[in-house]
Design a protein around this nucleic acid. Sequence first.
RNA 1: GCGGGAGUAACUCAGUUGGUAGAGUGUCUGCCUUCCAAGCAGAUUGUCGCGGGUUCGAGUCCCGUCUCCCGCUCCA
Length: 530
Amino acid sequence: MPATSLDQVVSLAKRRGFIFPSSEIYGGLQGVFDYGPLGVELKNNIQADWWRTNVYERDDMEGIDASILMNRLVWKYSGHEETFNDPLVDCRKCHSRWRADHINGKCPNCGSTDLTEPRPFNMMFKTSVGPVADPDSFAYLRPETAQGIFANYLNVQQTMARKLPFGIAQQGKAFRNEINPRNFIFRVREFEQMEIEFFVMPGTDEEWHERWLEARLQWWESIGIPRSKIQVYDVPKEDLAHYSKRTFDLMYNYPTLGYEEIEGIANRTDYDLGSHSRDQETLGLTAKVHPNNDSIVRMTYFDPELKRHIVPFVIEPSAGVGRCVLAVLCEAYDEQKVKEPAADKLEAVGQALQSFLKSVGRNEKLSEEQKSALSERGEAIAANLSENLAQIESLLAMSGADQIEVAKKLRGQAQPLVDENFRTVLHIKPKIAPIKAAVFPLKRNNADLVNTAKSIRKQLQLTGMRTVYDDTGAIGKLYRRQDEIGTPNCITVDFQTLEDQTVTVRDRDSMQQVRVAIPELEAYLREQMK
RNA sequence: GCGGGAGUAACUCAGUUGGUAGAGUGUCUGCCUUCCAAGCAGAUUGUCGCGGGUUCGAGUCCCGUCUCCCGCUCCA
């Protein structure tokens, strides 16, 4: 069963080298994270799979990689400069928040003059450009990658001789100065996007919008996020972004966070190309755009059949890489029972759990919501304690649980049992797993086993599969280690290997082993990765 | 930004009325070990978040500050 608490995933990500807080040695920087050795593999694999699916396996797509710094006018006409820039103040008395330029040093709500300094609520980061740091020579770090595509629309369409419909795909960093970054890598200030701008004939946009929704759901399923875990949210008109006619948000049910957006699929109409175009009045635009006297080109498409210039509509599927990595980890996470816990110890945990639940009922500091959430969860665990033992940790991570005195006792009794009888395993789809195979000698004090294992690992690596060698523990410990990072196959060199050149290959999910001849290993592993 | 909680070894946590910092796990070395976190012996790590104060003496008491978590707020 997938992660029941975000903490489980955060802790695993840190412990095993997936994700670290940025510049941690100096106390970190809020809303910024680094990918470690395994995280970067997972992330790269996901991005490569997205690229393969959307660029290589379609015949209506091109890729680009635009710069992060762009001419400021891009952000003026995209609408971001206007909608991303507000100086805000907080009222210290009633805690309301106002735009500084809308009030006169006085809180409109309670009349207090005890206000914080105005802070620019500037979603866009600025950096100075050129040798002189005067106030006018700055550029924004892009808050979305999309504009790099729109700005290159004509370059791509003309150099690649594309006809509608076609799309441009891009992956890259974007930056937003979030007021309150939180929830691990879910809301961050520096993040990576995977975006497509798909250009279509006006009038066919709604049909393409639906088609892209379907295509994107298929992709999510292919990397291990089943449709049943995604809710398609048809964003209400009043909540739509300034550029959108209609948007589907794909919402994944994250543990702890609940349903949150992993991808937005927006119908951006002719807003963007229209906004960046000259001679707007001659284009018959449907979107409301700001008059543009700076652009030097018409962002149009000449239709050879209609024999006239039109402004394409745009469908934009846009996903965040970090949120995707997080969803994959949450969905793949599992704490699985591999042995039956000792009956007496299990009973002790059961009693501790019951006294925990009684304390919850009696505690006066907890809200009714917290009480019922804790009780409900606790009862569910108690109903089948031996299977659910590993979930006690996430019960104790729930809101309010830290108020209960016996929580520590419960954890103290449950944790050793979980360590002894459960394994943590990431059921990551093999094609995106950070490590494809690990190679072990059955015994590390036997030179023949060690050398054979090392040479197998090297041969496999030369085929392009990320593989590792490990002998720093007994075989069972080595298996568990790989389970925890989602390695789909473990190859063990044993004494029979030295006689007949076969090895055992152990499957991560079933823990079953098969014997495979060394020369057939690569083909066997490739088959597993499909 | 406001309110509440928490910061002690790589991790999970003990640490009594203030008296020289502990356990388990992990990691490393050696022995042993023929497939699922085995055993034995040894080694390893701390400015007790940071800065001040009280005290003969502070992990412990006081003040300030930073970071993280939860709730509110905000939100691409």
